[in-house]
């Protein structure tokens, strides 16, 4: 690693300060059940006897810093084989910085593998001083359908006059279209979703989901090619469906059924 700043002592992995190098292998997986991203320290390779000694005697130790620039979160792990981070805390990619740090104060630090330019000088290093460094690595985080997925599958349109009834069309690939009657150029659903979201859910989304389940039952092969199908199928897989489209639409959301949520929000206000 070529650094543009100077350490006050030789550092393994920085320019040619010290003969040898170190390397780590990390694996990253997503655990759907616990909703965690798991970083596994597969291997720490050090090909320098002096650093082997420092690590074995616990005079120095490996630290992993994981930084997510999207969520402004930093985690620092010391000597841990497995590091778990809740998936609500991390997104897009992370920067992984691996360092070997001194674990003690006043450590006499010198070895023949140090560059001869140091002239056999002895250094004193203190706790948390960096003794080894690797290039920072940017790693993408495996993506999963976000929790708000349901919000991406409906499209609202207006009828050309207010005499027409609410309609649902689930035959399109990308969106389930909900067409509503306009009211003097206003869009009642926008106001309703803000003020009485669960009531609006009962009026607009439940019939749309019911229609979507009916379409899935009647034209399974076609439906399974649609984008919206993936979201619905993930939220309520086939084996968990009752076969009653209206009931399935209600239980698609976890927790309380929308009717009770709507009752609570209306009675509270």
């Amino acid at each position: 690693m070529k650094t543009d700043f100077s350490f006050p002592h030789p550092v393994l992995g920085s320019n040619d300060d010290i003969e040898g190098k170190f390397n780590v292998n990390l694996s990253i997986t997503r655990e759907p059940e616990t909703r965690e991203i798991v970083f596994k320290f597969v291997k720490l390779d050090v090909n320098n006897d002096y650093f082997d000694h420092l690590l074995n005697k616990e005079l120095a130790g490996p630290f992993v810093k994981i930084y997510c620039s999207s969520t402004l979160n930093t985690w620092t792990f010391y000597n841990q084989a497995t590091m778990k981070i809740n998936e609500d805390e991390i997104i897009n990619h992370v920067d992984i910085d691996v360092r070997i740090l001194s674990l003690v104060d006043g450590l006499e630090y010198f070895h023949e593998s140090f560059n001869s330019q140091y002239g056999k000088q002895k250094f004193i290093v203190n706790k948390n001083d960096v003794l080894g460094t690797l290039d920072k690595e940017r790693v993408p985080i495996p993506k999963e359908d976000e929790k708000l997925g349901l919000g991406n599958i409906f499209k609202f349109k207006t009828h050309d006059n207010s005499d027409k009834a609410l309609e649902v069309d689930a035959t399109n690939d990308e969106y389930i279209e909900i067409t509503y009657p306009p009211l003097n150029g206003e869009h009642p659903h926008t106001y309703m979703f803000k003020t009485y979201p669960w009531t609006a859910y009962n009026i607009f989304i439940l019939p749309a989901l019911e229609e979507a389940f009916r379409f899935i039952d009647e034209q399974k092969e076609t439906a399974s090619q649609f984008k919206w199908f993936n979201v619905i199928d993930k939220l309520l897989p086939e084996k968990e469906r009752t076969g009653n489209h209206f009931i399935d639409a209600q239980i698609l959301l976890e927790g309380e059924i929308p009717l009770l949520k709507s009752y609570k929000e209306i009675s509270k206000n």
Partner: peptide, 12 residues
């Protein structure tokens, strides 16, 4: 002007 705003329209 809300005519420029398209909301997802699901409870958040």
């Amino acid at each position: 002007n809300t005519k420029h705003l398209e909301f997802l329209n699901i409870p958040t």
